[in-house]
């Protein structure tokens, strides 16, 4: 169960980006890519992420959006492009040879973080005064 470690790493990356933007920031969402040729279960990561996010400053409302990347390979003998799958023992369905090059499917990346930036206190107070 390394999914908790993955969820924690995602939250740490979000936390670092919040910090780099200053004190009054909250993360709204984080988008990640999981390749299907990685040992990562999206549901377990989501569960761990939701359980842990309140422990990370500015992340308590952060939504995790997971996109899975289908694997794509060139077969090693004839360079057909195909999706390596367990039911074919990851072989090329056209010629039966194995994976030559894996073109995609090994991603494990944060691709986007949406962050809400609050105006500094001083300006907020000014707003409040104007409002009265």
């Amino acid at each position: 169960m390394h999914e908790a470690a993955i969820a924690k790493s995602i939250l740490e990356i979000v936390g670092e980006r919040l910090q780099s933007l200053g004190a009054h920031t909250n993360a709204q969402s984080v988008e990640v890519l999981f390749g299907e040729f990685r040992n990562v279960d999206p549901e377990s990561v989501s569960f761990a992420f939701d359980s842990m996010r309140a422990l990370f400053s500015g992340c308590s409302d952060c939504r995790l959006s997971i996109n899975t990347v289908t694997a794509a390979a060139h077969c090693k003998d004839n360079h057909h492009q195909y999706r390596p799958q367990a039911e074919n023992a990851y072989r090329c369905p056209t010629c039966g040879s194995g994976i030559g090059k894996l073109l995609q499917g090994e991603e494990l990346d944060v691709v986007n973080v949406v962050i809400e930036i609050e105006r500094p206190d001083k300006e907020k107070k000014q707003h409040a005064r104007v409002g009265r």
Partner: peptide, 16 residues
Amino acid sequence: MHESADEHAIERILGK
């Protein structure tokens, strides 16, 4: 007042 920022830089989750 809120602004929002999209941080698009791709980062490897297990980069650390």
